[in-house]
């Protein structure tokens, strides 16, 4: 069929001009499959190789810090006479003698320190301390911070204003200085408490330094978390499903718990995961200055501090805790970054 004005370039088939079936049209339409928020997030997280490696490293370190010491032949405070200042895999004269007698002596994988204590064991114990501090401190911050922030954000108005004023003041206080101050001065009342009041003996074992750290974290460090939670709540508050819940007669507590906090969980998880390395950072800093756990309990920071003197002769004593603390902090940071990229896609550039 031709026309002087127009010409089609190929041969036509008449049947092609019949109306198309609905099914034929559907096959042309491509729809992406939908997934839930969590599935989507985890899928993205798994693709992030760096985050997955970090997760693996963290798990390994956890095992090493909490499980291995129970099976290890040495303890952290055990001072072995004659085995002072050994290098990596070195044996002392006495140990060699014992080996000749037929006894199997477990090697000092990282040598020993000036008091004959096995460095590897101390390294593992120090890691345990760091991980415990990180997690407990972050848990404290999470609970205090999110509760405070949620209340301030939800109720708004005067309540919010007063609460946030307090946060502003705490924020401007130079925290490190106060931590140092508190760590120095809390020792005495805590020691008194341990000595005089029954049921508080654990203070001595844990060490007043460590407790001061927790006290300080509870007093000062939750403000960042409260700000984040508050701004989340403020955004979510305006969402329609909150208004709907209110219309159905839900009370404030229920709304905060069921709707607002659950939707903030993504942000909470990410912030907490990133808070852990920050807490560990602070703990190691304080231990380095001599304000953390008390001897003979090792901390990665105090081990590094004690090792500086012998840096030329026994570098391992410095490098081992240094590498370990860096590894822990780095892994948590990368995992936190990965979680954020996976669950908060709006932040992705």
């Amino acid at each position: 069929m031709e026309n002087r004005k127009n010409a089609i370039s190929f041969h036509l088939d008449v049947s092609d001009f019949l109306p198309a079936e609905e099914s034929e049209k559907q096959s042309m339409v491509v729809m992406r499959e939908s997934t839930s928020f969590w599935k989507d997030g985890f899928r993205r997280l798994k693709k992030n190789k760096l985050a997955m490696i970090s997760l693996f490293v963290i798990i390994v370190i956890f095992i090493m810090a909490f499980i291995v010491p129970s099976f290890y032949p040495y303890t952290y405070e055990q001072q072995i006479r004659g085995s002072e200042n050994l290098g990596i895999l070195e044996y002392s004269a006495q140990e060699k003698a014992r080996m000749e007698d037929g006894e199997s002596v477990f090697p000092h994988l990282l040598g020993t320190d000036s008091l004959g204590r096995d460095t590897m064991t101390r390294l593992l114990m120090g890691s345990r301390i760091s991980l415990l501090v990180g997690i407990i401190a972050s848990a404290i911050i999470l609970v205090i911070g999110s509760t405070y922030g949620a209340i301030a954000g939800y109720f708004g108005g005067k309540v919010d204003m007063i609460m946030m004023r307090l946060v502003d003041v705490i924020y401007t206080v130079p925290d490190i200085l106060i931590i140092i101050l508190l760590s120095v001065t809390l020792k005495y009342p805590l020691k008194d408490l341990a000595a005089k009041v029954p049921g508080f003996q654990w203070i001595d074992t844990v060490g007043v330094g460590l407790i001061s750290i927790f006290v300080v974290f509870s007093l000062l460090y939750w403000v960042g978390m409260s700000r984040i939670v508050r701004s989340q709540i403020l955004t979510l508050k305006e969402q329609d499903y909150v208004v709907a819940a209110k219309a159905l007669g839900a009370g404030s507590g229920r709304i905060i718990r069921k709707h607002l906090l659950t939707n903030s969980i993504g942000t909470l998880i990410v912030t907490t995961t990133l808070q852990i390395p920050a807490s560990i950072f602070t703990e190691s800093f304080l231990s380095f200055l001599g304000l953390g756990v008390s001897a003979p309990m090792p901390s990665l920071g105090s081990m590094a501090s004690q090792a500086i003197g012998g840096i030329s002769s026994y570098p391992v004593r410095l490098l081992a805790p240094a590498v370990m603390i860096s590894l822990i902090i780095l892994s948590f940071n990368l995992l936190g970054d990965g979680l954020r990229d996976a669950f908060d896609p709006k932040l992705k550039n």
């Binding site: 088939d13 092609d16 109306p19 198309a20 339409v29």
Partner: peptide
């Protein structure tokens, strides 16, 4: 084509001239 109410078979196969 997929959205056209009067879609024909040829519409799905060949680009209209």
């Amino acid at each position: 084509a997929p959205r056209c109410g009067k879609c024909m078979k040829i519409c799905l196969k060949k680009m209209p001239e």
